[in-house]
Write a protein that binds this DNA or RNA. Structure first.
Lengths: 182, 182
DNA sequence: CTCCAGTGAGACATCACTGTCTCACGTGGG
DNA sequence: CCCACGTGAGACAGTGATGTCTCACTGGAG
């Protein structure tokens, strides 16, 4: 009888990531639940988005933990990170857009994650594995941007979902230029 | 007396690129014009966005022409393209987001531009200058994604506006990995 | 079996935005 | 000078989403 709050969040994430402005009743329908029930669990749209934020932040952090960014080469670590990010990529894409919208009142959890990602890139630079002429902050933003682009490309069927991790990692690491050795 | 329609479009683009959902009266204020006047020039919000689309498509196309994508190496051509895209990057970022929202009813002008960009990447692949394991469609989406990320990074002051072209081109072409030769 | 907590459906007031209209004003051209 | 056009300010109704409330129902616990 009682509705699974987690399933509601998941359904909301899936819908809102494609249609950020979807009305509450549409979110409710997507979650297979009445509008009243949705509203009982989340005081309002803001609360719902806030909950999605917290969920996204937690999952993002968990993905970073799982990727063990300190082990092995920076390149391998980045590949692991992207692979770990893939399952929640839709949600992250939605949240990144959302965060860009409301520059003010951003959850401080994002700052922490941003800092961790940037620190990882900086470490790679200090190790001589990443280029030093591209600021860590830029690499971080580029990661987010490519994440969103990849999610969209998959949604549109422009690229295969299976290639997600490969395309992300290869472009971010090696770029489009054909290398002499490859 | 008469208001400069072009200036209104420019102001609208600047505001909406940061705040896509801004109400019409805010757009009007940003353009230094009354809401009624804004409405006299653009029948409604849709018409305004449509006008921005057309403007963006035209400018994007002009930038591609100016970049002379057929001359010289593909890498040089891509650098020229990114440099030519920079002045209108805010607008393009807004329009790309807008296009992602309304998958249906997309201006066919975008398809044409998409096709030109993809064809350029494909040509580079056939010439052996771009990697063939990254589909041209993905490179195209990545270009858009990085464009948006770069605009945002500059807006947030995370990177210097002067580095826009360099950061975009270097990441897209060479990626984050430190090359052996560089 | 009997409650009752949780639910879906719908009514309702409210709110923000929109698009239209009117009216007074000022500037520029005739 | 005077008129007319374009403008700004504001009023107005319409619309869609929101948040709250009520009510009837149902499935599960006791």
């Amino acid at each position: 009888m009682s509705v699974d709050r987690d399933q509601m969040l998941r359904a909301a994430a899936t819908l809102l990531s494609r249609k950020p402005g979807a009305p509450m009743d549409e979110v409710a329908r997507a979650a297979g639940v009445g509008r009243a029930t949705l509203h009982r669990h989340f005081a309002g749209r803001d609360a719902l988005v806030r909950a999605l934020e917290e969920r996204g932040i937690a999952e993002f952090g968990a993905a970073m933990d799982a990727a063990r960014l300190d082990e092995g080469s920076s390149e391998e670590a980045l590949r692991r990170l992207i692979a770990a990010l893939e399952p929640g990529a839709q949600l992250y894409g939605f949240l990144v857009n959302e965060a860009q919208l409301f520059q003010e009142d951003v959850n401080e959890g994002w700052d922490r994650l941003d800092a961790r990602i940037a620190a990882f890139f900086r470490q790679g630079q200090e190790r001589g594995e990443f280029r030093i002429d591209l600021p860590a902050a830029w690499l971080t933003e580029a990661l987010y941007g490519l994440l969103g682009a990849a999610v969209f490309a998959v949604q549109q069927g422009r690229v295969a979902a299976n290639d997600f991790t490969y395309l992300m990692a290869e472009l971010l690491l090696g770029g489009a230029r054909r290398s002499v050795t490859a």
